[in-house]
Simulated scan of single mutants.
Amino acid sequence: MDRRTIDPDLQRALIEAAHAAADAARDVILPYFRAPLVVDNKRPADFDPVTEADRAAERAMRDVFANLRPDDGILGEEYGATSGTSGLTWVLDPIDGTRGFISGTPTWGVLIALQDEHGVLLGVIDQPYIGERFVGGFGTARMSGPHGEMPLRTSTQTTALGDAILLSTFPEVGSPVERAGFEAVSKLCKLTRFGMDCYGYALVATGQVDLVIEAGLNAYDIAGPIGVIEAAGGVVTSWDGGVAHHGGRVVAAANAQVHAEALKILEPFNDSV
């Protein structure tokens, strides 16, 4: 399905379905947060935690889409891919930032994206504990939370890396080469902070920070943030300026000027991983 053929009524129905899925995930997840919790390790070589909250939230969202959008495909972190016939696919990360979740920090979130063969059409970042939801796509870029509902707009004031605030989840970022690329940008920025999980991308959309640079992402880690940030006026690409919705190495920037400066610094690090 070409995005240009999605009429306004269908757009509204898709946005409503995304909200319904985010609501369902909230209801399932919150009783697990800061409560006794069994944590399994999906990758024994290091530590890749998963909990029943992750699994239950994805099941709840899949149930919503099975009811409201049965012809759409689904790609989820915990239960993989389910094919559809509509040309649309929901990309789900039930808890992005499970390490933060089990640590009790409110930096994790529920990520929902809708995409077609060309890329992301709609994105949601939801932080259930704080009660904040960030939605972008189909001409919508809004957030709701403790301060009410308001539009989302990335910052246009910071146009130089020397004034920029940079976020990433892990200090090690990725491979040694990717770490070196990140550090090359970081040393030029005004401030660098770590540990934000998906909440860092939401802060780009609000205009609070200017850059998120990460590596080693999966599609479900970045599709939702792409929808939100691009709708709010930002730019999200791979380190070489290509599409980012497949994952990998990602630069999310508040505006084209900061994005271009970051890519220029990262360019020497693109040939090696």
Rank of each mutant, 00 (worst) to 15 (best):
I6P: 06
D9L: 13
A13V: 02
A13L: 07
A21W: 03
A24P: 12
V28N: 04
P31V: 03
F33P: 06
R34C: 03
L37M: 14
D46K: 07
F47N: 14
T51R: 05
A53S: 06
F65E: 08
N67K: 13
R69L: 03
G73M: 10
L75H: 12
E78Q: 09
L92E: 12
G97A: 05
T98C: 08
G100T: 02
F101C: 11
I102C: 10
V110I: 14
L111P: 03
A113F: 00
L114E: 01
D116L: 01
G119A: 08
L122Y: 04
L122D: 06
Q127D: 03
Y129C: 03
F134Q: 02
G137R: 05
M143R: 07
T156E: 15
L161H: 07
L167F: 12
T169D: 13
F170L: 13
P171Y: 05
P176V: 12
A180Q: 15
K187N: 11
L191F: 08
C198L: 01
Y199M: 08
Y201F: 14
A205E: 04
V212S: 03
I213V: 14
A215I: 07
G216L: 12
A219Y: 10
D221F: 10
G224F: 10
I229A: 03
A231T: 09
A232L: 09
G242E: 01
G247M: 08
G248I: 07
G248K: 05
V251E: 11
V258E: 06
I265R: 02
P268H: 10
